[in-house]
């Protein structure tokens, strides 16, 4: 039996700031809640291809597995991606990055 498809979103680093960004339906966003979720491989491939056409904004786009049902915010399944959402777990000086300059939209 084929393995169930794990929902996916597209993440990358913002070219200018290096900050973590996600591809949303209105463009790139620093807020994972606004990321567009692909519920099938064809949509995931389409989203990734769209991301790769924007090298002036996004560096190294790739697909991230998330839990996410229709209507709920995506949450990464891998710890590495959880840390990319929240920022470093250490350091009083490491406040969350400001929204990636809102340049995404």
């Amino acid at each position: 039996m084929a393995k169930a498809f794990s929902p996916k979103i597209v993440s990358a680093n913002d070219l200018m700031s290096g900050y973590t960004i996600y591809l949303g339906d209105a463009g790139w966003t620093s807020d994972i809640a606004d990321a567009e979720i692909a519920h099938d491989q064809a949509t995931a491939d389409t989203l990734l291809a769209a991301a790769e056409r924007q090298p002036e904004i996004a560096v190294g786009p790739y697909l991230v597995d998330v839990t996410g049902h229709l209507g709920s915010d995506p949450a990464p399944t891998k710890y590495r991606e959880v840390i990319r959402v929240s920022g470093p777990t250490v350091g009083a000086l490491n406040k969350l990055p400001e929204a990636a300059e809102q340049r995404a939209a």
Partner: peptide, 26 residues
């Protein structure tokens, strides 16, 4: 930044100058 260099072209150049891209930032 102006698009004349792709990331593939730029990456070795920035690395030669000590600039990495990490999880959250450069």
């Amino acid at each position: 930044v102006d698009g004349s260099l792709t990331e593939d072209e730029f990456k070795p150049l920035r690395l030669m100058n000590g600039l990495y891209l990490q999880l959250h930032a450069y």
